[in-house]
């Protein structure tokens, strides 16, 4: 399996005519989005959400940061849905507010401290117990802990890997489709597809 892919591939392709104008616009806008100030969440809740997202999808300190929590806040303030929700869950915004309070409640019951003051291992312990429906707290009697975790994780993953830099990191260049793909079989690469860097190569 690849260890990593070269830096800068998607950013370079975006400057070429191998990407359509409408694709370039969508990806460039995402690349240039700076940090969002919360509209839907309070500053406190938003800080907690960011801390959780850092554990769910850890980011490389040496790379520009991708604002996962900002995307969630933006969707909720616009009252957008992905088209469905579990009938056992309250409306998305309500679920996030309740669930974030639940994370604090569990952190406090397990470690007598706020989530953000915990060590990474302790934070992971809190999140894992929520995912596995083992977490203590009154919140989880009202809100299915595993579903809250699943929804949050799915949205965080979607937001993160929709970003051109995250796509670059996994060697995805499917957006450069103007010439089409002729070499589509096993081990067949076109020139614009980055070669992976294997552990042994380093």
């Amino acid at each position: 399996m690849p260890e990593k892919y070269p830096n800068g591939t998607v950013r370079a392709l975006l400057l070429t005519n191998q990407v359509t104008e409408v694709t370039r616009q969508a990806l460039t806008e995402r690349l240039e989005t700076s940090y969002r100030k919360p509209d839907f969440f309070s500053e406190t809740a938003f800080g907690l959400l960011k801390a959780i997202c850092r554990r769910l999808v850890p980011q490389d300190e040496n790379q520009p940061h991708i604002d996962i929590a900002g995307g969630i806040d933006e969707r909720l303030v616009q009252n957008k849905s992905d088209g469905w929700r579990y009938d056992t869950m309250p409306a998305d915004g309500e679920a996030y507010k309740l669930g974030l309070a639940g994370v604090e409640e569990t952190a406090s019951l397990l470690f007598e401290a706020s989530f953000q003051s915990l060590s990474e291992e302790q934070q992971d312990e809190v999140l894992q117990q929520i995912q596995q429906e083992d977490a203590p707290g009154e919140t989880w009697k009202k809100l299915p802990a595993n579903r809250f975790f699943e929804e949050l994780l799915a949205e965080a993953t979607t937001n993160y890997y929709s970003h051109p830099l995250a796509q670059e990191a996994i060697g995805y260049v499917g957006m450069a489709d103007v010439p089409g793909w002729q070499r589509i079989g096993l081990n067949q690469l076109e020139d614009r597809e980055p070669k992976e860097i294997m552990i042994n190569d380093e």
């Binding site: 990407v19 359509t20 409408v22 694709t23 616009q25 969508a26 990806l27 995402r30 957008k80 849905s81 992905d82 088209g83 469905w84 929700r85 579990y86 009938d87 056992t88 979607t158 929709s162 499917g174 957006m175 489709d177």
Partner: peptide, 26 residues
């Protein structure tokens, strides 16, 4: 766009409630 997020506009996103033992994602 050749971009999944931008193309979410093709999906029916008025919210539906998914119930039962195997709730269906819409």
């Amino acid at each position: 766009a050749t971009d999944e997020k931008a193309q979410e506009k093709l999906f029916w996103t008025d919210e539906r409630l998914s119930a039962g033992a195997d709730p269906i994602p819409f």
